[in-house]
Design a binder for these strands. Structure first.
Lengths: 206, 206
DNA sequence: GTCTATAATTCGATAGAC
DNA sequence: GTCTATCGAATTATAGAC
């Protein structure tokens, strides 16, 4: 068991790593800049995580866990409805991370959004990220296949791949001039999600 | 005027930088790894480009130029038609880079696609990339506004932002399991573009 | 579990010979 | 225009005291 202080040190390191990895990328972020921001000793990183690569994996997994859970839970609720599963209800669950990240976490949410985006542009990181999001990918693909039996699996797969790209872009660009999500109030988040669902549903059905 | 050999050295450096920046990111790629791949001397980089930052800017501009030109030219052709400008014709021009990059350049195209993707995930690079793609962004936004007068400028802007995210994803994921673009033959590229146009047009009109 | 000190490498940049 | 040599600073990682 870890003591309370060691848990705090781990969290401080993860918080700083999350922010710096998101802003600068994994390779460009040094352990020194992380321990400076976390106000811990350099040796503590190697003690708690072993290496920079292990710290990267731990950071990604901590970021992904609540996002995957929120999507899977909300999808399970939608699936439990007696009516036929609609594309819109699946998309509402798929875009749930927008609410999870932007509303509940504020500034930290935008950091995690950037980090999520990096998982798709850094080739060396992809295996780690793929594992972290595997469960989410699996259940959503299955739901779309059930809701769109007339479309081939390959067709649904590349459309779902584009949906992920859209979701990441929405999260990364939140609050910026041309973004779909301009503010962070519950009403604005809800409205943005509805715009996204409408946009995506039309594309998927096309 | 540069001599022939100096031009070759510059090109060798740019080719290696393009590949390594795309694969590892700007911050994580050292000048030494670039000169190793380019088989030139370290001092040659500073002689020809002055600094790492200048080399980054030169690499991005060289990548962006033919992409911007292809899109703008094809859009001009579509605009020159006597009929009303359709969303589909604009989107065909917008997705032209897929053909430019994937068909004409082969493996190097996929490298440039990744590099293009990095321009939107590395905050420090954004000003450079924004300048490199400014002309393209401007003409396409104007075309969409003309084709969709019933939609507000803000609405068109966030939809266009998502289109860029989709285009980058298509280019980055080309050839991978769940990608819309599976092969690189002219027929497959043309078919993928048509799928994309259909998907995007439905979303934009929604 | 936290720390200092340091080893071993690598980084960007520059000086100066040719 | 290209090269060698090198500076000063930064990097990851480790050893060992407390």
């Amino acid at each position: 068991m870890s003591s309370a202080s060691s848990t705090d040190t781990q969290t401080q390191i993860l918080d700083a790593a999350e922010r710096l990895f998101a802003e600068q990328g994994f390779g460009a972020t040094s352990l020194r800049s992380i321990i400076r921001a976390a106000d811990v000793n350099l040796a503590a990183v190697h003690y708690h995580f072993g290496s920079k690569d292990n710290l990267i994996a731990a950071t990604i997994h901590r970021m992904a866990q609540p996002i995957v859970e929120a999507g899977v839970e909300q999808l399970a609720t939608a699936t439990a409805q007696p009516n036929t599963l609609s594309v819109e209800s699946i998309l509402n669950a798929f875009f749930a991370p927008v609410e999870v990240i932007c509303q509940a976490k504020g500034e930290r949410g935008r950091i995690q959004a950037r980090l999520m985006g990096r998982c798709r542009t850094e080739p060396a990181i992809e295996p780690i990220a793929e594992e972290a999001f595997a469960m989410s990918q699996q259940v959503f693909l299955a739901a779309f296949q059930e809701a769109l039996p007339q479309q081939s699996e390959a067709e649904i797969r590349w459309k779902f791949d584009l949906l992920i790209a859209m979701l990441i872009r929405v999260l990364c660009a939140a609050g910026r001039p041309n973004a779909v999500l301009q503010g962070y109030s519950p009403a604005e988040i809800e409205a943005a999600i509805q715009r996204l669902v409408k946009f995506a549903a039309a594309g998927i059905r096309a």
